[in-house]
Design a protein around this nucleic acid. Structure first.
Lengths: 173, 173
DNA sequence: GGATGGTTACTCGGATAGGAGGTGTCCGAGTTCTAAGGG
DNA sequence: CCCTTAGAACTCGGACACCTCCTATCCGAGTAACCATCC
């Protein structure tokens, strides 16, 4: 079992975007710079998150990305499913029906016991991911991380954030 | 996230081997026939399970595979880890240290909050898999499956099982 | 001075190559069974 | 009739191609900001 790098990148980006004021955005280039990633490839994952309704993209100059809803309403599961797909990790091939002694499909009304057990485990995994929100991650970062790291992030945001277009930045929290 | 087919195959094979008498074996060819799989490729996974101490292989003519210990002591987690590897699905790249404003490594004594959350979820998944044994799977099969299917398995075993070498089959349960 | 239109530069979006890992297959090493030959 | 020994067949074990998916990159479409021009 293996998760792609995009999951880690997506969560980190979401956590950073969560620290923006309402309406503010951050360009993909700035996010890539902050984490030392390839801007082109990061863009691919940000696009995916936008498609899935987790981020909102603002086109044109001074555009960028922001969270589509409050960080407390975005779970790690949302991001993982957007990047990796929502399908189950264990895909039952129904090999119990593939032998030489197979019965008609009607003889298998219940799901395979193995499949059921594997899916139960996956539900436990998903539940744990759903219980953790991006806001929780941010809170832990502020509580546990080195103060210099927190200050650096704050400074980075002040330097690269893009105000909401059209009207001056308003606090609508 | 995606699990290979070998996991499903391995569990099915272990469940079938669990129905053998003590010391009896089943050849890889018989297992492949029972499930309609490629014998060559199935052999690859059986080899892996043998390496990991879940199965025992008996070489030579009339050889085959049997469980290395009682089915109650083999969990689904054992099989999944043998096939897929025991490493974590989420591999933290420490990208928080890769930006332009990185601090010396000593400034990150605690693990990344994101990594911690992902690993917590994986522990939940592993716990669920560890709680289910191959014996449980077999019990469910006997309790829930179509009687014809159970009878077919019993008949298959009677046809293809290999007795313990050297001495006649003894019941040492 | 203010409004307006065109230009420009910057952003995201999709389509396109490269590489790692899972998938599938083959042939060789090892071991046991078999059978023939001799005592 | 029993033991020895050589052969053969069957088993598992490791090494070799193929294919899908993740990784990485580029160029094009679209949009808002900017600036020169006109009123």
């Amino acid at each position: 079992m293996r998760l792609g790098r995009g999951v880690e990148w997506g969560i980190h980006c979401a956590a950073l975007l969560a620290e923006l004021g309402p309406g503010e955005t951050l360009s993909a280039a700035a996010l890539a710079l902050k984490f030392g990633l390839s801007p082109s490839y990061l863009l691919k994952h940000l696009k995916t998150l936008t498609r899935d309704g987790i981020l909102v993209s603002v086109p044109g100059p001074a555009g960028g990305y922001r969270l589509a809803r409050s960080a407390a309403r975005i779970s790690l599961l949302d991001i993982v499913q957007a990047i990796e797909g929502s399908g189950p990790a264990f895909r039952c091939c129904e090999i119990r029906q593939h032998g030489p002694e197979r019965l008609p499909p009607a003889a298998y009304p219940r799901p395979c016991a193995i499949n059921a057990a594997m899916l139960r485990a996956e539900r436990a995994w998903r539940s744990a991911l759903a219980a953790e929100s991006v806001a929780d991650i941010v809170a832990r970062f502020h509580a546990e991380a080195d103060p210099r790291s927190v200050a650096a992030s704050r400074e980075f945001l002040a330097r690269y954030r893009r105000p909401q277009r059209g009207r001056p930045e308003r606090a609508t929290v």
